[in-house]
């Protein structure tokens, strides 16, 4: 889904780089902005209550090995988020990156 959206962006605006990616693709220590959450109703509500809403700055602190969860900093506090859920959080691509 992200791929198709990115392709659309690239075609529309003529940029050479994709504009969005999922949170799991971020590097350690990278800071980005949330674009949207592509999850079910309940998960979305839960994340929204914890402050993960479009426009929030999010910093990826670290991730556990073997496809483990991610540690992120949102609204000044640290959250551990399972990888499956993190891959549904779509963030801005701040720099040139592969997806």
């Amino acid at each position: 889904m992200i791929r198709s959206m990115n392709e659309k962006f690239v075609q529309k605006k003529g940029f050479g780089t994709p504009l969005i990616k999922c949170l799991t693709k971020c590097k350690k220590g990278e800071k980005t902005k949330v674009i949207g959450v592509n999850a079910g109703f309940r998960a979305k509500k839960r994340l929204a209550n914890l402050g993960i809403v479009p426009g929030t700055t999010i910093k990826k602190k670290t991730e556990a090995p073997f496809h483990g969860p991610l540690e992120i900093i949102v609204k000044g506090s640290t959250l551990a988020i399972g990888r499956g859920l993190a891959s549904k959080i779509i963030v801005e691509c701040s720099e040139i990156c592969n997806f």
Binding site: R46, L50, E71, T78, L79, A80, I81, G82
Partner: peptide, 10 residues
Amino acid sequence: STELIMEMHD
């Protein structure tokens, strides 16, 4: 199984 969401306190 659901996904982990947990606050990590200092």
